[in-house]
C-alpha cells in the first residue's frame, strides 16, 4: 500500500506551523486541535490554497509540493469541504454537483453520480437553488460536489461547525458512510472532540502549530489529559444477538438489550461504567461484565482511565475521582464492570 506523507513549515507573523506526519491512506482521520492551533492553515496548505515556505506533500503516488514543485489547487485532485459551505448561488444544486465533475478528466471519474445522489440522498434537491436549502442540505451538496471530482484526498474543514445540533446529528451518518462507499481517505478537521470521536478511531492532534499526538483514538486521548478531562471515549463491543433481548460476547458473557433489537455493536461510554472488586450477591447480573485490568492511565494527575480487557476487546473506563485509588485496581486483577447505560448501533 502506498503511503502519504506530509511535511510543512509555514511561517506567518506570530504563528508557525511545523508539522511532519504520515497521512493514513484510508478511512477518516480526525485532525483535532483547539482554535488557533493551525488546523485550517494545515489543510489549506494541503489543498494548495496557501503556499508554505517549505513543504513536502505526497499523496499516494503524486507529489503536490516539494522543493521545486508546487501544484496549484485545481491540479491537486483534492476534495475540499469548507465550514461556510460556499455553494455557487448562480447554479442550481445540479449545476453545483456537476461543476467539478465536468472538469474532471473522463478517465479519472471514478465516483459515479448515481452513487453520490443515492448515498447523500441528493435527488430531491437537484432542481433547487442553494439559497433554498437548509444548512444540512447545503453541506451535503457541498460534500457531494467535492466527491464528484473523484479526489485522491478529501479535506473537510469543520463542515458541521456552522450547523445547529439537530443538523449535525442528521449529517453525521452520511459522513460515516463515505469511506466505505467511496474509498477516499478523508482528513476531517474539528475542534469538537466528540464530533471526531463519533466519526473515526484515528486522530491527529495539533497544538500550537505542532503535532502533539497521532494514532488510535484511545491512545491519543490518554496522551492528552486536558481533553480527557472533559471527554470520555465510547467503547464499542462486538458480539452477536442470541435470542430475544440477549447479546452474547465471544467469551459467553451476555448483555441484556431491548427485546426486539438486533444491534451490530453495543456502545458503552467510558463514563457509564463503574468497577467492583467482587460481584454483588443480589445483582440481577444483566448489566455486570467480568474483565481483566490491563493498564491504568493517569489523567490530570489521577489514575482514573482504566483499560480493561473483555472477551478479547478493549474497554476504557473513566472513573470518577472517588475509588480510583483502591488497591485492587491494578493491572492483572479481575474486576466486575457495572454497565449503567448502553447504546445500540444498528446496521
Amino acid at each position: 500500500m502506498t503511503t502519504s506523507d506530509v511535511t510543512i513549515k509555514f511561517n506567518n507573523p506570530g504563528f508557525d506551523l511545523d508539522v511532519h506526519f504520515p497521512l493514513p491512506t484510508r478511512g477518516i482521520s480526525g485532525l483535532f486541535g483547539p482554535s488557533g492551533s493551525g488546523k485550517t492553515t494545515l489543510i489549506r496548505c494541503l489543498a494548495g490554497l496557501e503556499r508554505p515556505s517549505q513543504a513536502l506533500i505526497r499523496v499516494g503516488d503524486s507529489v503536490w509540493q516539494s522543493d521545486n514543485i508546487f501544484l496549484p489547487a485545481h491540479k491537486r485532485r483534492v476534495g475540499m469541504v469548507f465550514q461556510d459551505v460556499r455553494l455557487f448561488d448562480h447554479l442550481k444544486v445540479e449545476g453545483n454537483l456537476l461543476f467539478g465533475y465536468k472538469r474532471t478528466p473522463v478517465p479519472d471519474r471514478k465516483i459515479k453520480i448515481d452513487d453520490v445522489l443515492k448515498i447523500l440522498e441528493l435527488k430531491p434537491l437537484l432542481g433547487k437553488r442553494p439559497e433554498k436549502l437548509s444548512g444540512g442540505e447545503a453541506q451535503r451538496v457541498a460534500i457531494g460536489r467535492a466527491l464528484l471530482t473523484s479526489p485522491s484526498l478529501m479535506l473537510m474543514d469543520e463542515p458541521l461547525a456552522a450547523l445547529g445540533e439537530q443538523h449535525k446529528k442528521d449529517i453525521l451518518p452520511y459522513l460515516k458512510k463515505l469511506p466505505e462507499n467511496f474509498g477516499i481517505p478523508m482528513l476531517y478537521v474539528s475542534h469538537d472532540f466528540e464530533e471526531i470521536a463519533a466519526l473515526t478511531q484515528y486522530m491527529i492532534c495539533l497544538n500550537n502549530g505542532k503535532i502533539q499526538a497521532q494514532g488510535k483514538l484511545p491512545e491519543v486521548a490518554s496522551n492528552l489529559p486536558e481533553i480527557m478531562h472533559r471527554w470520555a471515549p465510547d467503547n464499542f463491543i462486538k458480539g452477536e444477538t442470541c435470542g430475544p433481548g440477549k447479546y452474547k460476547l465471544p467469551d459467553g458473557q451476555v448483555i441484556h438489550i431491548p427485546l426486539a433489537a438486533s444491534p451490530a455493536r453495543i456502545v458503552i461510554n467510558a463514563r457509564d461504567i463503574s468497577l467492583l472488586r467482587i460481584a454483588p450477591e443480589h445483582h440481577a447480573g444483566d448489566a455486570l461484565l467480568k474483565g481483566q485490568i490491563e493498564k491504568i492511565a493517569e489523567i490530570c494527575g489521577e489514575k482514573n482511565m482504566i483499560r480493561i480487557s473483555l472477551a478479547g476487546q478493549e474497554i476504557n473506563v473513566l472513573l470518577g475521582t472517588r475509588g480510583s485509588n483502591e488497591s485492587w485496581i491494578c493491572p492483572g486483577n479481575e474486576v466486575y464492570m457495572v454497565i449503567n447505560r448502553i447504546k445500540l448501533e444498528m446496521e
Binding site: 485545481h74 475540499m80 469548507f82 460556499r86 461543476f99 474532471t104 467535492a146
Partner: peptide, 24 residues
C-alpha cells in the same frame, strides 16, 4: 472564498473567473 472553492473543484483561475465570478 468562492474562487477557492472553484479552484479546488478543478477550475483553472481563468475558467473560475468566467464560470463563477462573472455570473455571480
Amino acid at each position: 472564498h468562492i474562487l477557492e472553492s472553484a479552484w479546488t473543484l478543478g477550475a483553472r483561475p481563468i475558467g473560475a473567473f468566467f464560470s463563477v465570478v462573472l455570473p455571480l
